[in-house]
Design a protein around this nucleic acid. Structure first.
Lengths: 133, 133
DNA sequence: CGCAAACTACTAAGGGCTTAGTTTCAAATC
DNA sequence: GATTTGAAACTAAGCCCTTAGTAGTTTGCG
């Protein structure tokens, strides 16, 4: 009967800095503190120790995993980006849109500038979803 | 040339309790502390003073306005719910979906259970938007 | 007018987030 | 093997959020 693996009901959203670093981890795969530091935009001058601290916090929260390598550590994501995106959308639907997904989309098409190709994309998404429910 | 009134570029998202109370303010219109307290679900037993404090913080942030009435104050929303919804969606698109709105919708249709009427709704939204760009 | 009730302002404590310095530890090099 | 070096752990300060108590003020009523 294969229990569906849904261990994360509603883990707290990542904080801004955590999310900022996670984007780098997701993009690069397995990274050292130095890698993350290097991947930050030039105007974002975090100290080495600050990045290190945040990565350690992320590990403590179970969002990343670390393995020892040479002098330092390599960090990689435990929480896939997909899963975090899903979690974020659900959270927004829940907290701001009264659990009504279409209300979110309604606001989106009204409040965010959408290109023609964006619109195409959306239509395709709905068609794909609609055909095999 | 009528300057477009867009004073709020990216105000901080409301905190969980702030949002919780704002939902009540948006729903009821103009409320006293006691009104808000009464509108909270029974299991959510906040102290009168806690509600009062949060409303005062909201006022300080410019999210609500208060006017004196009788013994106490009446609070009403300055930030309309629409605007906050828009702001929230934009924020999510920006911070989690790399500024790509269709990525959000893609994740939504995949990660949130959508009813048939939800799907209808969405299709209508897109059609309406698509016809007069 | 004076008192009781209601309401607000002040204050505070606990916890988490952000940032980063200091210290300690391990590794590479000579 | 000892020294240098670079990274991680520990620590901390500042700020905000949440919750609520206390004290002080206003108001309505007798």
């Amino acid at each position: 009967m294969t229990r569906k693996p849904e261990p994360e009901v509603a883990p707290r959203p990542l904080t801004p800095v955590e999310l900022e670093l996670m984007h780098i981890v997701w993009r690069l795969g397995e990274v050292s503190v130095a890698d993350v530091l290097a991947a930050l935009p030039p105007e974002r001058a975090l100290a080495y120790t600050s990045v290190s601290t945040v990565l350690r916090i992320l590990e403590q929260k179970g969002v990343v995993h670390s393995r020892k390598q040479g002098r330092g550590h390599l960090y990689s994501a435990v929480l896939p980006r997909d899963a975090y995106e899903a979690q974020s959308v659900r959270h927004l639907v829940e907290t701001v849109f009264d659990g009504t997904p279409s209300a979110l989309v309604a606001r989106l098409v009204e409040a965010v500038p959408l290109s023609a190709s964006d619109m195409d994309q959306l239509r395709k998404l709905l068609d794909a979803k609609g055909r095999k429910p």
